[in-house]
Amino acid sequence: MLAFLIRRISQSAVVLLVMSLLVFVGVFYIGNPIDILIAPDATPAEYARAVHELGLDKPLWEQYTIFLKGALHGDFGNSFVYNEPALKVILDRLPATLELAFTAMFIAVIFGIPLGMVAGMKANNWIGRNIMRFSILGFSLPTFWVGLMLIIIFSVQLNWLPSGGRGETVMLLGIPVSFLTLSGLAHLILPATNLALFKTSLAIRLTRAGVQENMQMDYVKFARAKGLSETRVIGLHVMKNIMIPVITVLGMEFGSLIAFAVVTETIFAWPGMGKLVIDSIGVLDRPIIVAYLLITVTMFIIINLVVDILYSILDPRVRLGQER
């Protein structure tokens, strides 16, 4: 287990290194941030000054080395547009995004898995079919479109919920959270629902597929033959077996929830890091882009690690490390 962890961590360090290099080269190819940031009537002298100030006149490899040296000390450089440490700017925004993503995942799980189980058990009945049909709606329409629709219906027409922004926050263990205040909760519902729609559909479908498959398995027949109650058969035995694909896919989706919260955050003016990174990509604010990606990759790596460990707990046949 320990060896496994150490190996994973050292591999991850390489991933992070490669990632940072890719972003440096990628952003370099997209363009020069000064072309976008500078006032259009600036003189060439002013242009040259700005390029020099931000260190963009140095060769790319030198810029990268400077970045690496700083990164080793936890300094990812100053944002080009905010002139504050990139890491700080992102960490300020991280809680809002995590809160949104967790809420969305929570919604997906509490609605998706039970509905999926119902759909799986009653596959040939109207309930099951309708659950499946409605679940298709969850991923057929683009997020941005659904988002604005939610706003038009629930904020403009019905005036039940606020149209955007984050609402009041309170500190919980030193982290600002909004789900503990009424205004915060009201602000959270629409964007979280918007973000959760796709994941809920996916959870329904995955659960249904798993339930259907496992219901045919011999162990279910035996369990039933043994006289176990239906609730116990499904709640315990079937659940345990369907959790693996559901956890893998939802685990991956949690990462993509964070990465793709971009659209939802833009539509709902949610002050998270998705909105930040889309703005930063728009102006090629490289320090922010790099730091953002390093943070998300780290989160991915941790999620995957947790998923792999969960496998080994849920399914004893899977061994960590998998070396043969």
Partner: peptide
């Protein structure tokens, strides 16, 4: 690890 890398790279970028 390449998969991790790819999955966390935003589609937009």
């Amino acid at each position: 690890r390449i998969v991790d890398l790819q999955l966390s790279f935003p589609a937009i970028l």
